[in-house]
Design a protein around this nucleic acid. Structure first.
Lengths: 246, 246
DNA sequence: AAGTGGTCTAGACCACCGA
DNA sequence: CGGTGGTCTAGACCACTTA
């Protein structure tokens, strides 16, 4: 049975009607009533269910579309958006003619650890809370190009500890979705500049102290929870990024 | 006298009615009927003028708001957006406790030149077309922090050649607006990584070959014309940028 | 042809702003 | 207070997709 019954008075509420309906709709998506990729009921059906005009229902849906939760396709329906693919790190780098190459991923270690200060802060974990740390390398053109260290909360991710390194998918986010039912919906990247440590330089086959781009990423699930913190390091000479400002 | 008379048939046009009205409205803004910062007529007045329902008029205006051309303020009106301030380069850098400091600008040269290949390509100028090249330094905390080279088309910018270096404003975009009536509405930045040349290093008081962030920017006016190409170079150690992905 | 989202209408009232 | 944008209604028809 779906959530909340129709709304009450026409006005006099602190929130607009469309916003309250959007909230209810979001709740039903998060509760799993409609899964990623599935269609939600038609606007007309929903407007009848909530007892509002079609335009109001459209407003509610529109707000969730702008939020990235839903996606409308003319003539087909309104769908719950699938998550990010995780191949998004490539957008910061330019590797010579490696477009066709499948980005390979090599898992180096998967360990249960106490979250270090930086990761704990970004994931909003209590001090000394348990987390899982994953180290991996990403390769293009037969060379190791990116070094990644990921932290995820121990709580919903502990199944990863029992997984063989070979069984990890080259893309983490689709794997989170399939194996854990966790959808990554949004991420925030913080870019800065760094130099390679001795160990990093050795793995990347570059000189110690070589310029490096450092990307710190926090990933969020559909409900807005912080579910992954990731630090990626790559050769700064391959950095390129396009930003639009208004 | 304003532009285009009311629209015709209800449907059967290739473009939605709101899109055609948005186009007409945009034309009136570009023609200078309403200047930056001024309010356009009320929705009700416009809907009557164009002979459409209020909701349709709102849709037309909304599309221009999303485009960055207009700005609505509840209870006050709908306004033509002012341009970018030009202080936007700071968002890529972090300078220690220089928040309060006024970013100073030092013009080194203003010259009429033949646009070099890169600038000509970005500004869509013909080969060997005349342009104006401006070199300047930007300082925070008493130190030169950024080196900038700008190219603008000779055509609407020639007045800058007669201007004394001291009379240049520290922010270019407001100056374009005041002195030339050109509003910068949008810009695209392309970030990459570089090393300082000998001359650059001397000016920035850093070692030759020191890591540098390079920003190539194309700026667009209200009509979408490319009106400035700019290359900015700064110390990569001060680079930081936040990107959100969905 | 049936079902979906997209456009459009003609009204009404609400919430905010400034004089 | 009068004017602005914001919300909401109850319809109608258009345009796209699928079967």
């Amino acid at each position: 049975m779906p959530a909340s019954p129709p709304a009450s008075d026409k006005y006099t509420q602190s929130q607009p009607l469309w916003a309250r309906i959007a909230l209810a709709l979001r709740g039903r998506v998060l509760a799993g009533e409609w899964k990623a990729g599935e269609a939600i009921p038609a606007e007309s059906a929903l407007s009848e269910f909530y007892g509002v005009a079609l335009g109001t229902m459209r407003g509610a849906i529109q707000s969730l579309v702008e939020d990235g939760l839903l996606e409308r396709i003319h003539g087909r329906g309104t769908f719950v958006r699938g998550g990010l693919t995780g191949a998004t790190m490539l957008r910061f780098f330019r590797f010579g003619s490696a477009e066709g190459d499948v980005p390979a991923s090599r898992i180096k270690s998967v360990k249960a650890v106490k979250a270090p200060a930086l990761a704990a802060r970004e994931l909003l974990l209590a001090a000394d809370e348990q987390a899982i740390c994953i180290e991996r390398q990403r390769c293009w053109g037969g060379k190791v190009q990116l070094l990644e260290t990921l932290w995820v909360p121990h709580d919903p991710f502990k199944a990863l500890l029992d997984l063989d390194k070979k069984d990890f998918s080259p893309l983490m986010y689709p794997m989170y979705a399939e194996r854990l039912g966790i959808t990554v919906n949004r991420a925030v990247d913080e870019l800065s500049f760094d130099r390679l440590s001795a160990a990093q330089a050795r793995t990347l086959d570059l000189p110690v102290g070589h310029p490096a781009l450092r990307v710190e990423r926090v990933a969020f699930d559909l409900a807005g929870r912080r579910i992954e913190f990731r630090v990626t390091v790559g050769n700064a000479d391959h950095f390129r990024y396009r930003a639009e400002i208004r």
